[in-house]
Design a protein around this nucleic acid. Structure first.
Lengths: 207, 207
DNA sequence: GAGATGGGTGTGGTCTGACCACTAAAAACA
DNA sequence: TGTTTTTAGTGGTCAGACCACACCCATCTC
């Protein structure tokens, strides 16, 4: 009769509930016992759903207080997935390639729509060593103003970091060159600087 | 005393177990009751861990049979995240933009590494009306040989389709033009044809 | 009156035991 | 030997019981 597992149904209901009540980050959701009653299911089933969502980083539970919607951005699950999964070499290469491709997409977006003032501000921060390459890309991604894509990038970055590759040392000059190119809206120079920053000797001209 | 929640500890243990026994996709893991005994925890806690991993797509359970390792690489988690998130209009625009960007990345990849014969074969299929644009892009994505990126694209396409946008009619001529450009390895022509295919009057020259 | 104290209540965290539904393999049967 | 039935094992779900903790608020103390 019940083809769908109860806990999945609860996940669904929760989603609907969140949508209907327009719950946002930090808001509280009904207690486990209340959900159990309201949905006519056992509390353990409710818990299975909540624990799953918790592991996904979608909710946060605080003993004695309740369960709350979470700011999705930092999902530790990815880290878990990373260590859990990425086994074969091909997968690793895929991660690297995908991350690079997406970062270059961001560069294109910024080339197209970025504010010069903002870029100059970032430049001065880099020059003052108050911003490293990682932080810079975070800013860049934000500048591109595409939340979904930025989320994908964040996840990829987590994957990437979980690969434990030998880290290329931070090359401030390449980064400054990159910013310069962005300011000048010079596409070719931008990607050249990017390749240099990421040590992409493999990526010749097409990228 | 027990600062870490039991179910998280179980997830950890499972990971170690899988690693130690070198379990791979399709392999069976111990039953809930056995895990419960072996780890000295309640079965409900074991279930919370398993359900979470199941929602993540890491394991698969079959009633009456057991619990099995799953092919990890496809992360449906993003799908779930998406359905949780995609609410406002801006998010929709992000989906469209991201999908387009990624598809163009695939075009670049194919431009760089695709086999001409394969392309010609696809061309003849399109000409014979045995392949529409959607199916063509599926082939294209496969050709690019990046599993992770293709998964991301598939998910995006699902998002995209769930937006219920007015569908542009299938334009075979644009598609043929696109393939032609790919065969000729003409980047500019390729993107021009792509824009035409997707009706991207907005995307002027930068993309 | 202001502050400290301490239950009371509600919440998540966990365990146990009990069924049910289903599967696959063993046992009984023909 | 081939079929049917039984049985043991597995996940699915529920109900109830405690525990640990956080918060509120009446009460006590100064």
């Amino acid at each position: 009769m019940t083809n769908t597992k109860v806990y999945l149904e609860i996940v669904k209901q929760l989603r609907a509930m969140i949508s209907a009540d327009d719950l946002k980050s930090g808001d509280k959701i009904p207690s486990e016992r209340e959900l159990s009653e309201r949905l006519n299911v056992g509390r353990s089933s409710v818990r299975e759903a909540l624990r799953a969502l918790e592991l996904l980083g979608l909710i946060e539970t605080r003993r004695g207080e309740g369960t709350f919607i979470r700011d999705f951005r930092g999902n530790q699950l990815v880290q878990l997935l990373g260590t859990f999964i990425l086994q074969d070499e091909k997968a690793k290469l895929d991660v690297i390639e995908t991350k690079n491709l997406i970062e270059m997409d961001f560069l294109r977006l910024v080339l197209d729509r970025a504010d010069e003032k903002e870029l100059l501000k970032l430049k001065s921060l880099v020059e003052a060593d108050q911003l490293n390459d990682d932080q810079f890309f975070n800013q860049l991604v934000e500048m591109a103003d595409n939340y979904l894509f930025s989320r994908i990038w964040l996840i990829l970055k987590d994957y990437y970091n979980s690969l434990n590759l030998s880290k290329a040392e931070y090359n401030r000059n390449s980064l400054l060159l990159l910013i310069e190119a962005l300011v000048e809206k010079d596409e070719e120079k931008t990607f050249s600087a990017y390749r240099q920053l990421r040590n992409l000797s493999i990526f010749t001209d097409k990228y």
